[in-house]
Computed example of a mutant assay.
Amino acid sequence: MKPYQQIAIDECGEPLVPIPPEHFAFEIPHPYQKLGAPYYNSKADSPYYLRQGVIDSLIAAQTQLQQNHPKWKILIFDAYRPVEVQQFMVDYTFNQIALAQGCDFPVSEDKRQVIIEHVYQFWAVPSMDTTTPPPHSTGAALDITLVDENNRRIDMGSPIDEISERSYPDYFANSNHPQEQPHHRHRQILKNAMINAGFQQHPNEWWHFCLGDQMWAWLTNQNNSGSQLIARYGRY
């Protein structure tokens, strides 16, 4: 169990609704659908759904971003993710790492444990327990980046879903390399817009933000000595 999964959930019952296309850019076709992830049993007809309150705050983040960068947009890479899709992507990532390391299949138990621990540094456990839902399965978490007026991605220094330390939000913070310094600046622009709109950022992933789920409550509580928050969004 990860620390944030100890946070209690008081489900508010807010609906899962489509992200309005007029406000944002989208990763089309969706990256996990291209791999064959099983969305066909999903409660939404695409991955681009979030809880209504999360969308309201995301629109506020877009407004905040465009105050200083009027031609930039938030690009939605991924949003709502059923637990079945979470399991598919954990398995896919495990197999990709095992192949890259030259492992024989089936992978030995010792090696399997090492790889799966590495996977779970970045991917949430695909738990079916309603008290420990994967963040994306609540409709309160999303993976995003930025694009310019020509719909070209702003360079963040590493791709979304990379399993490495380069994914840590502040990885480039102390770099003296002139080609790497803009990476941290771009990440900070994204982070500031999202944090000012009420989101929290995943400690290991520059692209993952959440609002209202267990991770959001846990991260907020780390900086709050007063009353402790609980989650308002559980598994959808």
Rank of each mutant, 00 (worst) to 15 (best):
Phe105Asp: 12
Pro3Leu: 03
Gln52Leu: 08
Pro159Trp: 01
Val114Met: 13
His136Met: 02
Gln214Asp: 07
Arg185Met: 13
Tyr168Ser: 13
Ile154Gln: 15
Pro134Thr: 03
Pro106Arg: 05
Pro21Gly: 09
Tyr168Met: 14
Thr220Pro: 10
Leu75Asn: 14
Phe24Leu: 10
Asn204Arg: 15
Ile55Lys: 02
Pro133Gly: 13
Leu50Tyr: 04
Met194Lys: 10
Cys210Val: 06
Leu142Ile: 09
Gln86Leu: 05
His30Met: 03
Ile189Asn: 00
Arg187Tyr: 05
Asp213Trp: 00
Gly157Cys: 03
Thr145Ile: 09
Met1His: 09
Gln66Asn: 05
Gln188Thr: 14
Val90Glu: 01
Asp104Val: 14
Asn223Tyr: 13
Glu84Cys: 03
Thr138Ser: 12
Asn223Glu: 14
Asp161Met: 09
Pro106Gln: 08
Pro15Met: 04
Tyr236Asn: 09
Asp110Phe: 11
Asn196Trp: 04
Ile115Lys: 07
Val17Asp: 06
His30Ser: 08
Glu180Tyr: 11
His202Glu: 12
His186Ala: 05
His136Thr: 00
Gln67Trp: 03
Pro178Ser: 10
Ala25Ile: 03
Leu35Ile: 02
Asp143Met: 09
Val90Trp: 01
Ala173Tyr: 01
Gly102Phe: 09
Glu165Ser: 11
Ile230Val: 12
Gln5Leu: 11
Lys2His: 13
Asp78Val: 00
Pro182Asp: 02
Pro159Cys: 02
Gln6Glu: 15
Arg51Lys: 14
Gln121Val: 12
Gln86Glu: 15
Phe77Cys: 04
Val85Asn: 00
Thr131Asp: 14
Phe26Ala: 00
Tyr48Val: 00
Phe209Lys: 05
Gly234Leu: 01
Thr220His: 13
Glu205Arg: 15
Gly13Gln: 10
Asn204Phe: 15
Ala140Lys: 06
Ile154Thr: 12
Phe94Met: 07
Pro20Glu: 00
Glu162Ala: 12
Thr93Leu: 06
Ala37Ile: 04
Lys71Ile: 07
Gln52Lys: 12
Met89Cys: 08
Ile160Lys: 07
Arg185Ser: 14
Asp213Gly: 05
Gln5Glu: 15
Ala61Gln: 04
Glu14Lys: 10
Pro182Gly: 06
Lys191Cys: 07
Gln214Glu: 02
Thr132Cys: 11
Thr93Met: 11
Asn150Lys: 15
Arg166Ile: 03
Glu205His: 11
Phe77Glu: 05
Arg153Pro: 07
Phe105Cys: 04
Gln64Cys: 10
Glu11Asp: 15
Pro182Cys: 06
Gln62Arg: 08
Val85Phe: 02
Pro70Ile: 07
His118Leu: 12
Thr138Ala: 08
Ala44Phe: 03
Tyr39Asp: 11
Glu14Ile: 05
Leu58Tyr: 06
Leu58Ser: 08
Ile115Cys: 07
Leu229Glu: 10
Val54Thr: 13
Gly139Thr: 05
Trp72Cys: 06
Phe26Tyr: 04
Gln188Leu: 15
Cys12Ser: 14
Thr220Gly: 13
Ile55Thr: 00
Gly36Arg: 01
Gly157Ala: 00
Asn192Tyr: 04
Asp56Lys: 14
Asp78Met: 00
Asn95His: 11
Phe88Ser: 10
Asn41Lys: 12
Leu58Trp: 06
Met89Pro: 04
Ile28Arg: 12
Ala61Glu: 02
Trp207Ala: 14
Thr131Met: 14
Leu142His: 02
